[in-house]
Nucleic acid binder design. Structure first.
Lengths: 108, 108
DNA sequence: TTAATATTTAACCATTTGGTTGAATATTAT
DNA sequence: ATAATATTCAACCAAATGGTTAAATATTAA
């Protein structure tokens, strides 16, 4: 019970934790796609893909443009940077740790 | 039914999608901790923290050293790099897209 | 050997997740 | 107006998740 999941980083990582959704991001990186075009890429119902897109949208990783009955989805990766930044901190830490370890080893 | 979740990236992103587990990573970035020390940081049962650590371990984000009855957990961030690399691809793409957009705007 | 400590495992529970199908809602074409 | 198309929404389901408590398993200390 973490009370209503406030951290936006949660949304981003949750969104990226599913292979189907990562595929959606991958496809959208090439070009924006309508829902119909997107659904055509998966062996899954329209509704299922629709739900996945909603998860990505909720994490602000994609943006939707509605023209008439056609919904076009495009990448909106500002929040990818948040995830990147978070990971980078620990990645950098690890890198420098490794470097210090190398230094220590070299001093032998 | 994506048949048994094979992609190791799944494990990493799933592991990072929980705020408690990100806190564990944060704590371990400072120094390795025994299970008891780790549990003391959370308002949660030993068993619950134990499960979270297992998720991180499963994603190869932490490593466990057992000495007698004491389990010491430390960061093992090789896999953080995998997540970082994945995100970087799309982040870079976005960055260059933005740059081109700026170029177009400037040409006005 | 007995007791205390460190930890996992098991059984359970409520909620969330990822999928389904079918109905509802708009929009566009005939 | 009617039919076709694009999409969401609702109800449902099975499996996974994140938590609990209680019991089991080592290991160490008295």
């Amino acid at each position: 019970m973490t009370s209503a999941t406030k951290d936006p980083l949660d949304l981003v990582f949750v969104a990226l934790s599913d292979a189907t959704r990562r595929s959606v991001v991958h496809l959208l990186a090439l070009k924006p796609l309508t829902m119909t075009a997107l659904v055509a890429e998966f062996e899954m119902s329209f509704a299922a893909v629709s739900k996945h897109v909603k998860v990505l949208e909720n994490a602000s990783l994609v943006k939707r443009t509605v023209v008439g009955r056609v919904h076009t989805i495009q990448l909106a990766p500002e929040n990818l940077t948040k995830a990147l930044d978070w990971i980078s901190i620990y990645n950098n830490f690890w890198q420098s740790r490794l470097d210090s370890l190398e230094d220590i080893i070299k001093k032998d």
